[in-house]
Design a protein around this nucleic acid. Structure first.
Length: 604
RNA sequence: GGAGCCUUAGCUCAAUUGGUUAGAGCGCCGCCCUGUCACGGCGGAGGUUGCGGGUUCGAGCCCCGUAGGCUCCGCCA
């Protein structure tokens, strides 16, 4: 037996007991005579004291120990010398005086200190197993576990069952780039890793499962971000005979259970709801961060006959003029204005008009073009006060909203409006929101076709089905919804199409040929003809959710072994070359080797 | 595919206008130290300043290129 107790369990009441502990040498303090070791395991720290006069042999060996050596000690629990108790440690009243020391494993010189913040992520990833010993990451792993457990417990309590779906799956044309897996038994053919268990979970509804969930690994071969990894985890939920309200209810209940279990936080439910159109109109984003005000205000009507050509031109072209009031930000520097303008241009604006209100004066390159009536309208609609900064967007609706929405976020960032709110303790620091009524399809000028905004199985709102026949695809609203937390999309879902005729209509609108419908989606269409119940669901990004709960800035810090932003695992050095024999078995020849083809030595 | 920021000792950082032998703390190695808890003291090792080129009498510093890391845009139904 390696140990009788962990390093966080001994107290005053244990004094006199003979115990055995095992763990890592956290810190060693060698006083020449007496030697102190803080012994660490996953539970905590216990001070171990080696005294030469009590056991010279053991003390001598202890002197040779270094940081992160793994040891096992046996000894008696003793009260600390009065006055030397350490109130910072849970075990600070006692110490262990060993009569036996076993060195289980020695550690080399360490690549970086375990008890300090380190920003060299490269190095951390290379030694990830060591990085994970750091308290913050160790805590994140445990929070993640508690989130997963609360998810399973809650959904189980609601009658949902967890069903595993295949990882070796089939490529579909829509959506993200697939990771492909070559088949040995079917030469030249490929599996695809699932981007999500979407079709399988719908088929489980046809199977009569009625209430399904899965903590499912998903794979997408796209470029990475701080909150995007090539493989990630979704809490995937699907249910039959449900309306959006049913899905909202189970999601809210689950998130309440998760926050309670992970951080003992009571979040407020039901969550507010905004339609997609309102969200864009008021916040310039389909995942608005509402922890600070600064809403977009439409001032189009006040400038219809304006003498200011930029506004007038946008309006005459059928666009809008909108503005935000960045309260108290008149002190913005010229450099910051330039930076905001750059941001605005990046998202399609031609420029970024502004007014600074300083010393009761409107300082602005454009205000001279405004009439008194226009100024009065601005004053009242934007509630302009001393110290404010007004920023304008004049363009077609989507562009003006997005530009101001992005500008709004950047302003908040500069002013640190959202600050560390998400890292707070109280329920009100967590702003949950449903965004509903997303458009069903979006025109892609690049591909010259309509694409599904959510996915091709999303149900149109009943009131908008007639628009299919009118071919007004862009106006059809979907029975689709996202759940947003503090400006981060943490999940999304929809009610699905369960009628084969409607599904065919949808494929037709998306330009999926009759042949492709059969070869790619035939199984689903056949399933819909065998008694598919009405169904719908949602998927939540577990990594993002845990990231927010842990107050981290990247999902890498809540994953045990993440990849860097080029998709490389620096610890295992994957992806890597494989043995040519493996390739031959898979009937694969690398394009980079093709030019050597003729010269390659033939094998016996 | 594009943009920005970063790269100096194992780690975190410094190095005045371009100017002597590139420094400090931590870590590492050695010695000393019997009540510390970020123990302390003395000594030591450790650097192709990411790499390549250029400007210059002289480059860690300026210029060009390149590699790597991170962030963002595109992309991510």
């Amino acid at each position: 037996m390696y140990r009788t107790h962990d390093c966080n369990s001994l107290r005053k009441t244990d004094i006199g007991k003979q115990v055995t502990l095992a763990g890592w040498v956290h810190v060693l303090r060698d006083h020449g005579g007496v030697i102190f070791i803080d012994l660490r395991d996953r539970a905590g720290l216990t001070q171990v004291v080696f005294r030469p006069e009590e056991n010279a042999e053991v003390a001598k060996e202890a002197r040779s120990l270094g940081s992160e050596d793994v040891i096992e000690i046996s000894g008696r629990v003793a009260a600390r010398v009065p006055g030397t108790e350490n109130p910072k440690l849970a075990t600070g009243d006692i110490e262990v005086i060993p009569n036996r020391l076993q060195i289980l494993n020695r550690a080399d010189a360490l690549p970086f200190p375990i008890d300090a913040e380190i920003h060299n992520e490269d190095l951390r990833m290379t030694y990830r197993y060591y990085d994970l010993r750091r308290p913050r990451l160790a805590r994140n792993l445990r929070v993640r576990h508690r989130v997963a457990k609360a998810t399973r417990d809650y959904l189980d309590s609601q009658g949902y069952i967890e069903v595993e779906t295949p990882i070796l799956s089939k490529s579909t044309p829509e959506g993200a780039r697939d990771f492909l897996v070559p088949s040995r038994l079917a030469p030249g053919k490929f599996y695809a890793l699932p981007q999500a268990p979407q079709q399988y979970k719908q088929l489980l509804m046809v199977a009569g499962v009625e209430k399904y969930f899965q903590i499912a690994r998903c794979f997408r071969d796209e470029d990475l971000r701080a909150d995007r990894q090539p493989e990630f985890t979704q809490i995937d939920i699907e249910a039959s005979f449900v309306t959006p309200d049913d899905i909202f209810g189970v999601t809210e209940g689950m998130l309440r259970a998760i926050f309670k279990a992970a951080r003992d936080i009571d979040i407020k439910a039901p969550f507010d709801r905004l339609t997609y159109r309102e969200a864009i109109n008021r916040y310039g984003s389909d995942k608005p961060d509402r922890r600070f005000g600064v809403q977009l205000v439409d001032i189009s009507d006040d400038f219809r006959s304006s003498g200011f050509k930029v506004f007038r031109g946008a309006l005459d072209a059928g666009g809008v003029v909108k503005a935000i009031n960045a309260k108290g930000f008149a002190g913005i520097t010229t450099g910051q204005i330039e930076e905001l303008t750059e941001t605005a241009k990046l998202f399609g604006a031609k420029g970024l008009a502004f007014i600074k209100v300083e010393n009761r004066e409107w300082k602005s390159p454009i205000v001279k073009f405004f009439s008194d009536a226009e100024k009065a309208a601005l004053q009242s609609k934007l509630k302009i006060e001393e110290g404010d900064l007004i920023l304008f967007g004049a363009d077609k609706w989507e562009t003006a909203c997005e530009v101001l929405g992005r500008t709004r976020l950047r302003v908040a960032e500069i002013q640190d409006l959202h600050g560390k709110a998400a890292k707070g303790q109280s329920g009100s620091d967590w702003d949950f929101l449903w965004v509903t009524d997303f458009p069903l399809m979006q025109w892609s000028a690049e591909e010259n076709k309509w694409n599904a905004v959510h996915h091709p199985f999303t149900r149109p709102k009943a009131a908008d089905v007639a628009l299919f026949d009118a071919k007004k695809f862009g106006e059809i609203r979907a029975e689709a919804y996202d759940v947003v937390l503090n400006g981060v999309e943490i999940g999304g879902g929809s009610i699905r199409i369960h009628e084969p005729e409607l599904q065919e209509k949808m494929f037709e609108a998306l330009g999926v040929s009759t042949e492709d419908r059969q070869s790619l989606f035939g199984h689903l269409l056949r399933a819909l003809r065998l008694g598919a119940p009405p169904h719908g669901g949602i998927a939540l990004g577990l990594d993002r959710l845990v990231m927010l709960i842990c107050g981290e800035d990247t999902i890498r810090d809540v994953m045990a072994f993440p990849k860097n932003n080029r998709g490389l695992d620096l610890m295992t050095q994957s992806p890597a070359d494989v043995d040519p024999r493996q390739l031959r078995e898979l009937s694969i020849r690398l394009a980079s080797e093709k030019r050597l083809e003729g010269r390659a030595p033939s094998r016996p």
